[in-house]
Simulated scan of single mutants.
Amino acid sequence: MSEINKFPLISGYLSLDLVNTELVSRGQRQDLLLSEGDALDWIQVIKGENSFWDDQLILKIKERIGQVLESILEMRTILRIQFESIADGNPIPDEFIAFLEKKIKKSPFTYKLVDQKLIAIPVGEAEDILLSFIAYDFLALIEKNKLTSLKRCSNNDCVLLFIDESGRRKWCSMKICGNRKKVARFQHRKSDDE
């Protein structure tokens, strides 16, 4: 499996795509971030989605990959709890917002002009930089009121979450769960016809 296909980047949001590095396959929960190599693969994939990440940041991450992996796994656990709670209709706790703001304070932003666009670039240790980006992404979802459209996949066996701005989406992805359900319905109808 190629590293791009390995990670279901179904949301377009860094914080949510981190949470979606845990999924269910063949009835078993799988963690796509088991090793430092997996973490580096994921970082390369999300770097493609965030092209303003420079090579210096990637080098910093590689030098501290053990700490980076530990930090993103801890953050993923915390984010999953919050995203699932929000998807279930619960409000976002003020304490959680303060937690995210503290993550950004550990790696404050400086700014750089890239292609006539002002880009925020955090400074600090690699793991703090990465967590700062993730925290910023979550806070931006709150600011843009995107979390009111947060949903769980309609496949009860799936743990993936997504933003449904159309109000009609049921599946995390047609390729992942939607197609499976269509095939299962087709097979069921076919067996009923026989």
Rank of each mutant, 00 (worst) to 15 (best):
Asp17Ile: 01
Asn20His: 08
Lys182Glu: 08
Val45Ile: 10
Gly167Cys: 06
Ser154Ala: 14
Leu100Asn: 04
Lys170Tyr: 05
Gln187Glu: 06
Leu18Val: 01
Gly89Ile: 10
Asp31Phe: 01
Ser51Arg: 12
Trp53Ile: 11
Glu74Arg: 13
Tyr111Trp: 08
Lys117Glu: 12
Ile61Phe: 08
Arg189Phe: 06
Lys182His: 12
Ile97Pro: 10
Glu49His: 15
Ser15Gly: 03
Ala87Asn: 02
Phe83Met: 01
Ser85Val: 02
Val123Gln: 15
Asn50Glu: 08
Glu74His: 12
Asp193Glu: 10
Gln28Pro: 04
Leu118Asn: 10
Ile72Asn: 01
Ile142Asn: 09
Glu22Val: 13
Arg29Leu: 09
Lys106Ala: 06
Ser191Asn: 13
Leu100Cys: 15
Val123Cys: 09
Asp115His: 10
Lys62Pro: 05
Pro122Trp: 00
Asp128Pro: 03
Val24Tyr: 07
Ile78Gln: 12
Phe138Gly: 00
Lys105Val: 06
Leu118Ala: 13
Ile104Tyr: 02
Phe109Met: 02
Glu84Lys: 14
Gln56Met: 14
Lys105Phe: 05
Leu33Cys: 03
Asp128Val: 03
Gly89Leu: 11
Ala184Ser: 13
Arg152Val: 08
Arg152Glu: 08
Arg180Glu: 07
Leu33Glu: 01
Ser35Tyr: 07
Glu165Met: 10
Lys47Gly: 14
Gln82Arg: 07
Trp42Leu: 03
Asp115Cys: 06
Lys62Tyr: 06
Thr148Val: 12
Ala87Ile: 03
Ser2Lys: 14
Lys146Ala: 15
Pro108Tyr: 00
Gly27Tyr: 07
Leu161Gly: 00
Ser2Val: 07
Phe162Gln: 02
Met1Cys: 10
Lys190His: 09
Glu165Ala: 11
Ala98Phe: 14
Gly12Asp: 07
Met174Lys: 02
Asp41Val: 05
Arg29Lys: 13
Arg168Gly: 04
Cys172Tyr: 00
Leu69Phe: 13
Ser166Thr: 12
Gly124Asn: 05
Ile65Thr: 11
Met75Ser: 05
Gly37Asp: 15
Glu127Tyr: 15
Gln67Cys: 08
Ser173Val: 05
Leu131Asp: 03
Ile97Gly: 06
Ile104Pro: 02
Phe96Ile: 01
Lys47Ser: 15
Asp88Tyr: 11
Glu84Gly: 04
Leu59Tyr: 13
Val19Tyr: 03
Leu34Ser: 12
Gly37Arg: 14
Leu100Glu: 05
Leu150Met: 03
Pro93Leu: 13
Phe52Glu: 11
Glu101Phe: 07
Val24Leu: 05
Ser35Gln: 04
Ile119Gly: 04
Gly124His: 04
